[in-house]
């Protein structure tokens, strides 16, 4: 099934709140090779003025993935997971994510472009905290390979 023609502009409901755990931040930081004391050492983070450890710059992907799951689960969207390749990715932060944050994501499909039989689906996920303040926006392009 091809990507739905009316996909651009489609939004999905806010994801269930995601509680950022201290050990999850540390686990993620170690997995991406971080040696930053802000991400690994609570005392260092507090000394720098943060409430708890600071997540690495790509950590918001955890919340973005929850929103992309909504898109992939939407049978009317026509985005076949087995044909999807990650094309590009961007994070624009208003502030760093810190352990203890309760985050929700809301995703909107911003554009669909067709290129050589492939569909490039670009979506924007706005991640907000428990005070409804914007924390980071994650923009992702998925390349959905055509039949050819």
């Amino acid at each position: 099934m091809p990507v739905a023609a009316d996909l651009p502009g489609r939004s999905y409901p806010d994801t269930q709140p995601y509680l950022v755990g201290r050990e999850k931040v540390r686990e993620f930081a170690r997995a991406v090779g971080s040696r930053d004391p802000l991400s690994l050492d609570v005392e260092a983070a507090r000394a720098a003025g943060f409430a708890d450890v600071v997540a690495p710059p790509t950590f918001a992907v955890v919340v973005q993935d929850l929103t992309l799951s909504q898109l992939l689960a939407d049978e009317t969207a026509g985005v076949d997971f087995s044909r999807v390749v990650h094309g590009d990715q961007r994070f624009t932060a208003r502030r760093p994510i810190v352990a203890g944050d309760l985050l929700t994501g809301r995703m909107t499909v911003t554009s669909v472009k067709t290129l050589g039989g492939n569909a490039m689906v670009t979506s924007s996920t706005v991640v907000r905290d428990a005070d409804d303040q914007e924390v980071v926006t994650a923009v992702s392009t998925l390349v959905v390979r055509g039949d050819a």
Partner: peptide
């Protein structure tokens, strides 16, 4: 993507990365 930004994180700190794209 997460690995590639680590030299920047080591130099400037995770909290000072405002935008990152690849």
């Amino acid at each position: 993507m997460g690995l590639a930004v680590q030299p920047v994180v080591e130099r400037f700190g995770a909290a000072r990365v405002l935008d990152y794209q690849v």
